[in-house]
Design a protein around this nucleic acid. Sequence first.
DNA 1: TCCATACGTCGAGAATATCCGACATATACG
DNA 2: CGTATATGTCGGATATTCTCGACGTATGGA
Lengths: 123, 123
Amino acid sequence: MDTNEAILAFSALSQATRLEVFRLLVEHEPDGLPAGEIARRIGVPHNTMSTHLAILTRAGLIDADRRSRSIVYRARLEAVRGLAGFLVKDCCGGRSELCAPLIAGLSLCGAPQAPSPREVAHG
Amino acid sequence: MDTNEAILAFSALSQATRLEVFRLLVEHEPDGLPAGEIARRIGVPHNTMSTHLAILTRAGLIDADRRSRSIVYRARLEAVRGLAGFLVKDCCGGRSELCAPLIAGLSLCGAPQAPSPREVAHG
DNA sequence: TCCATACGTCGAGAATATCCGACATATACG
DNA sequence: CGTATATGTCGGATATTCTCGACGTATGGA
């Protein structure tokens, strides 16, 4: 989690529609939702939603997967963990040894397995 | 941590200067830094910095305290914990009972004492 | 009171974000 | 191929944010 990546993620989540979309996708883990149904549920035109989905994707917060004619989006929980870890690292003010076990513990939240323990404990 | 509060915080942190200011203040916990020195260190005119500090304050991420002619700013680590908790709650997709102990554990990061355990475990 | 220091507020120009109609692309079916 | 469905992209009109010069406010000392 770089500073630029964090700014991208914060910027993506600082918009009401996008935050709602993200939480909607988190609720629908691990199945995800197609773009059209997301737009319908939130009540936003499909092209506007497409832009928001692109921003969330570029921020690494969600993931696109083509399924026949639909494109199913899923929340990337690793990004959530990474962002929480970025905040926690800030919270520790460089004393990351205090927070590393807590960050590692965040992988329990819905993620099937932690992909790289070094990443979160690197500080 | 309300949705609107989260959007305010995300919006405040989605700007390079403000994120830098926030991290600088976290590094200087618990003493804080006066507004002028923050502006000098980041290399931004004092009035521009004043606007950024006001936005961070309005988002609940930092705190102002008058000391003679200077106004000393400090990072509000409780807000960091609240924001991390908001993300973690999302991460759990409503199954907050899984994450409540983790959120409670975040209070270990620099915060002297947890002000209200109900707040973080309420879900 | 007068001055100096430290910080905040106002205003406007520039940059950026948001939104949606119109059009383009991709897949499935016949 | 043509048609229908599902989604992405382009364009510009509107709204918001960012920045900084100029001025206002608060504190301390003579």
